[in-house]
Amino acid sequence: MGKLIYSMIVSLDGYVADPEGEFASWAQPDEQVLAEVTKETSAVSTYLLGKRMYQMMSVWETDPEVIEQSPESTQFAQVWQRADKIVYSRTLESVHTSRTELRSHFDPEEVARIKAAAEGNVTVAGPTLAAEAIRHGLVDRLDLLACPMAVGGGVRFLPDQRIDLALEHEQRFDNGMVQLRYEVLSST
């Protein structure tokens, strides 16, 4: 049985995108951070993705320029490609990456079964989809890569509800990012 992990890059004030929906200028991991992300995600057997996260992440299989931009990028792409992916969208008609299935809605019972049967960990990416998993008590761990940037608003990392957490791990990187890992004790 794997853990269900909600993992995202966030601003220091808790946003995954700024008020204009932008994140690329401030949420780019450098090679040191990408190496750690690759190490962490090598234990992932299944990704649960919303439509926007899937469209953003699919470049790790479909865009040779992104895949080959560095040795660390190539390694991350290999890890991402070998995992199963489930995309939740009411508007997508098809998916264009291997090992990928499309669902029209989030089914907490199915996600619980996926988690129970997983050979590795399961990650949920995207704040809307993750909020749904958190509301159903399915998320076991939060993994944040906190950027040394406050954006003052935008798309929040966490839903508006109480979540009791215990810090399991922290790591600082040369570029100012900090990796934080929290066990979810309870959410109400």
Results as ranks from 00 to 15, higher is better:
Gln69Lys: 11
Asp13Lys: 10
Gly137Arg: 02
Arg162Phe: 03
Arg172Val: 14
Val139Gly: 06
Glu168Tyr: 03
Ser187Phe: 07
Leu12Pro: 08
Arg113Leu: 08
Ile134Val: 12
Glu110Tyr: 12
Glu68Phe: 04
Thr41Asn: 10
Ser73Glu: 03
Arg52Trp: 05
Asp140Met: 01
Asp84His: 15
Val139His: 03
Ala17Gly: 01
Lys85Leu: 01
Gly176Tyr: 11
Val178Phe: 00
Ser89His: 06
Arg141Met: 15
Glu110Gly: 09
Leu167Lys: 13
Trp26Val: 05
Ser94Tyr: 07
Ala125Asp: 15
Pro71Lys: 13
Gln69Val: 02
Glu20Gln: 15
Gln55Lys: 01
Asp18Asn: 12
Val79Phe: 03
Val111Tyr: 00
Glu61Thr: 10
Asn175Ala: 12
Asp143Ala: 11
Ser98Ala: 15
Gly153Val: 04
Val10Asp: 13
Thr123Glu: 11
Ala77Phe: 07
His96Cys: 07
Glu20Cys: 02
Ser11Ile: 11
Lys39Asp: 14
Glu68Val: 00
Ser73Val: 04
Lys3Asp: 00
Val139Thr: 01
Thr91Ala: 07
Ala150Val: 03
Tyr88Met: 00
Trp60Asp: 08
Gly152Pro: 09
Val44Pro: 14
Ile5Phe: 01
Thr123Val: 10
Met149Val: 14
Gln161Phe: 07
Glu31His: 11
Pro71Ile: 06
Arg103Ile: 04
Leu145Pro: 07
Phe106Ala: 04
Phe76Asn: 14
Leu4Arg: 05
Ala35Thr: 11
Asp107Phe: 06
Leu145Arg: 03
Glu20Leu: 09
Val33Asp: 00
Thr188Arg: 13
Val66Asp: 15
Pro159Asn: 09
Ile67Asn: 10
Lys3Ser: 07
Pro108Gln: 14
Val37Arg: 03
Ile114Val: 13
Gln32Leu: 07
Ile9His: 10
Glu68Pro: 01
Pro108Cys: 04
Glu20Arg: 12
Gly21Cys: 05
Val155Asp: 12
Thr123Asp: 08
Glu22Gly: 05
Pro19Gln: 12
Val87Asp: 13
Leu48Gln: 03
Glu22Leu: 06
Tyr15Thr: 04
Val16Phe: 00
Thr38Met: 01
Met53Asn: 14
Pro29Cys: 12
Arg99Lys: 14
Tyr6Ala: 04
Val178Pro: 00
Leu180Arg: 06
Lys51Gln: 15
Asn175Ile: 07
Val79Arg: 07
Gly154Lys: 00
Val37Ile: 13
Val37Phe: 02
Ala77Gly: 05
Ile134Ser: 08
Asp84Gln: 14
Phe106Ser: 05
Asp140His: 05
Gly126Ala: 06
Trp60Thr: 08
Gln171Met: 05
Glu109Cys: 05
Val139Lys: 01
Glu132Met: 13
Val10Pro: 06
Gly154His: 00
Val178Asn: 00
Ser25Asp: 08
Ala146Leu: 08
Ile9Arg: 01
